[in-house]
């Protein structure tokens, strides 16, 4: 547990929770990122403006942080493009089919004690842990 950062994790987590609550109180919307992203892509969608505004704020955050000296480090990703593309396809298709991701199910849904969200979170945590176990320990990647 050498890299465990409980204080910054708790502060960051509280901000994520605060954002979800403020979005619900102000606009009545669920802060599920996959749902917001899909809403943006759906050509028949009703109101896209709040989706664009939320995602705009999300992308603006590290840019503003950079201006005050807390720039975001370039994310270190797998160098294998096939893995990146397959992962992206699975995340896009899976969150759409399952109706949510880490934010929508994992935070907003569990906060409302939704049985669907509790189940979804257990399932995606389990398959993610298995995937990491297989790729990092069995395949030696």
């Amino acid at each position: 547990m050498a890299n465990f950062t409980p204080v910054s994790a708790a502060i960051g987590g509280a901000l994520i929770g605060l954002s979800a609550v403020l979005l619900m109180l102000s606009t009545g919307r669920v802060a599920g990122i996959s749902g917001i992203f899909a809403g943006l892509l759906n050509w028949r969608g009703e109101d896209k403006r709040w989706c664009i505004a939320f995602l705009g704020g999300l992308i603006l955050a590290p840019i503003l942080a950079g201006l005050i000296g807390y720039g975001m480090a370039q994310p270190r990703l797998s160098s294998n493009w096939a893995v990146i593309v397959v992962a992206g396809l699975l995340v896009g298709f899976g969150t759409r089919l399952g109706g949510g991701c880490t934010s929508g199910h994992g935070i907003c849904g569990i906060a409302r004690l939704s049985p669907r969200s509790v189940t979804a979170t257990i399932v995606f945590m389990a398959t993610a842990i298995i995937t990491v176990a297989v790729t990092h320990h069995m395949l030696g990647g």
């Binding site: 990122i33 996959s34 992203f37 995602l55 999300l58 992308i59 603006l60 955050a61 590290p62 840019i63 975001m72 994310p75 990703l77 797998s78 893995v83 990146i84 397959v86 992962a87 992206g88 396809l89 699975l90 995340v91 298709f93 899976g94 969150t95 759409r96 089919l97 399952g98 109706g99 991701c101 880490t102 934010s103 199910h105 669907r116 189940t119 979804a120 979170t121 399932v123 995606f124 945590m125 389990a126 398959t127 993610a128 842990i129 298995i130 995937t131 990491v132 790729t135």
Partner: peptide, 27 residues
């Protein structure tokens, strides 16, 4: 729900990215 969550988890575990951090990192 079950199939979608399972597929999402595999994709998440492959690279460590879920939709929020991925979109934010576009910056």
């Amino acid at each position: 729900l079950l199939a979608g969550a399972a597929l999402f988890g595999i994709g998440w575990g492959l690279v460590g990215l879920c939709p929020g951090p991925a979109l934010e990192s576009l910056a």
